[in-house]
Structure formats: structure tokens, C-alpha cells
Simulated scan of single mutants.
Amino acid sequence: MKVILSGGWTLGPVTPLLAIYEVVKEKYPTAEFVWVGTKNGPEKTLIERQGIKFVSFSAGKWRRYFSFVNIFDLFKILLGFFESLLFLRREKPNLCVSAGGFVSVPLHWAAKFKKIPTWIHQQDVRIGLANKLMAKSAKIITVALEENVKKFPVGKTFFLGNPVRQEILKGDKETARKMFGLSGAKPVLFATGGGTGSENVNMLVADAAEELKYVCEIIHLSGRERDHEKLEEIASKNSHYKTYNFFTEEMKHAYIIADLVISRGGFGTLTELSVLKKPAIIIPIPGHQEENVALLAKSGAVVLVDERVETGAGLAKLVKDILEDKEKMESMKNKLAGLIIIAKKENILDIFEKARA
């Protein structure tokens, strides 16, 4: 049996598929997996560390506004479709699975043409354009939020919850202390701007760092594609602040040691924070991530920060206030864990069998 997983450019479409991979691989140890990703995204390193064969295709992103770039990207999509046809002819998979991402669109269209079943998973509150484009040709559609079932075709759409990698739960605090050079004398703040990083989040954390010198130790995952010069300068002058540009195995250890997390508002990240029961300050990308975070913030499960108006000083004060309020931190953990439904292993396998049948 061979399964094609696809998605990339950011790690949003990647993490739930890795969770599905873990479950299926455990049930079918001899199953083969191939990952189709982007040429320049951060996913390649993460996927290959899992021992999964990685290939990249041309990927064009269709923008929902007028842009001349759409013309060039249309040709990329067409090229990706023909690359996909040749790839599927060679690999002869039993199933293609995606959680979004534009690299998946021509692949799933080609799979439909070749009569290969496909399964797409929708995480976010707002339906992504890639999933909208793949929905008609999909054999099975699953959603992380029950309210989104009605937004897809009846009869082939199922509420699953969001899959979470078991690997992310295997962090060790003592390993983390050694790995990140932590003293253990102060609480730990883990700040991340998502798989590709965020310049806005980086600058907010950097500006807050010196004001948090006597409050906490900071692990800052800044993103491979971002400017690190200022961050490294701050780190050289402040022993409580550590900056890194990319994590693979380190991620689970950063999570487990963190008393408080600052992150973007992708649904995969929110799900991981939920299952790990971590209080979090969420700085969503304006747009679809704000919709992900709105309900959680209203319920007191997370603290929402708007990057367009927040300052480093304001963020530092917020971090200090939360870390000093143990009751609030406990409440945030429990509320977040109660609001996001984690996909059960048996349900993932049931959907997998339906999809490949």
C-alpha cells in the first residue's frame, strides 16, 4: 500500500498529516509514504527527519484579488498538474491525503483524473481556498470543527477533530534544560512565529526581551527565513534569551519546558497547545487566524494580541502579569483543552479505511 501526503510552504498543512502518518504507519508498518511539498518551504527538513520520501512540485497560489502574478501562477498550476500526472503514473498510490496548501491542488485534480481516491482535511474556521478547490474531487472530507461539516458536500464530509502528532507529547524537561541552556531558576517563555517565522512577532518578542530579564527565560523560535542579526545581538547581551531559527526534534522539548507560549494562531498550533495544556498568548496573522482565535479568546482560553497595535513593552507587561497569576494560567489551560477536540486514533483509521476503499 502506498499513500501520498501533500502540503507545505507553511507548516500549517503539515502537522495534522504527520499525525495521520503516525497512526496509519503504526497500523500498517509496511505501508509506503511519499510527501509532495514545495520547493522552498520549511517542510522538507521536517518530513525527511521522519524518514518519508520528499518530492517537490511547481505550486502556484491563486489570489482572491486582481494581481498580474495570478497569470504566472496559473502556468505554475498547469505545470504542477502535468508533473502530478507523471508522478502518479510512476508511484501508483492507493490514496492521496492533504490538509490544504496550494501544492496539493494540481496533485488532487490529477488524482481525480487518474481515478485515485483523495481525502482532504480542513482545520481552520475559515475554509481555505485550496480545500475549496479540492473538495469537489475529494472522496472523503474531514473537518476539525463540527460547525464546518455543513460547509462541504453532504455524504462525504465527517467531523473528525484535529489530529495531533504523538511525537510532540514526548518532550522531556531535563533534556530541554540542557538543550537550551536554561538555569531552571525562572519560568520559561517559548515564543514562536510559526513554521516560516514572523518578522512582526520577532520584533515584538525582541523588544520585550530585555524588559523580561528578571521575569523569565526565553526560548525564541524566529523562523529560518527571517532576519536574525538583531535577535542574535540581543542574545549575546542577555543570558536569559535564546534564539533559534528552526526546530525539528527540539520542538517537543521547547513545548514541555514552557510555562507560557507566544505563538501565531494556526489551528494546528492551537491544537498542540490544547493537548499539551499550555497557557498561551496568541498573535494571529490578520485574517483567517483571527477567526480561529476569536472564540478561544472570548472564552478566556487564550489571550489575544493584535500585532498592529501591540508594543514590546506592552507584551512584556502582559507576559509578566500572566506568569504572576497562577490561577489564570490554570484556567486558560483547562479552557483551551476543553474547546478543541483532538481526533481519536480509531476515528482516523476509520476515515482512512473509508477513503482508500
Rank of each mutant, 00 (worst) to 15 (best):
K115C: 10
H253S: 10
N238P: 03
G41Y: 10
K230H: 03
I4W: 05
I4K: 03
M251C: 04
L315H: 14
G268C: 13
I257L: 12
F180W: 11
Y21I: 08
Y241A: 04
L18C: 06
G7D: 12
G60S: 05
L160V: 11
E272S: 12
E217G: 06
C216Q: 00
G193K: 09
I262N: 03
N162V: 11
K2H: 12
I322N: 01
F54D: 03
F57Y: 12
E174M: 08
P153N: 08
G314A: 10
L95Y: 04
K139H: 13
E346S: 14
N347S: 10
E250F: 07
R89Y: 13
V103E: 06
L295R: 15
S67G: 12
F75M: 08
A355W: 01
I282Q: 04
L145V: 09
L17K: 02
I141E: 00
S98D: 05
K132T: 07
F82I: 15
G7C: 09
N94V: 01
P106K: 13
P163V: 11
F246N: 05
I285S: 09
E249M: 07
N292I: 06
Y255I: 12
V154Q: 13
E146P: 00
I257V: 15
F113G: 06
G101H: 10
K170E: 15
E229K: 15
K170V: 05
I77F: 11
I342S: 06
P117A: 13
A337Q: 03
R63T: 01
N334T: 14
Y255C: 07
K25H: 12
S58W: 05
E22V: 04
E26Y: 08
V275L: 08
K298H: 12
L221C: 05
V302A: 04
A130H: 02
E229M: 01
A59T: 13
T243V: 15
K136N: 09
T271K: 00
R226F: 01
M329D: 08
E232W: 02
Q123L: 13
R89I: 07
L336V: 12
G287N: 11
S263Q: 11
F267S: 00
E249G: 07
A297F: 09
A144K: 11
F113C: 07
S183D: 05
Y65L: 08
D172Y: 05
S104D: 09
G265N: 06
E147Q: 14
P42W: 06
K92G: 02
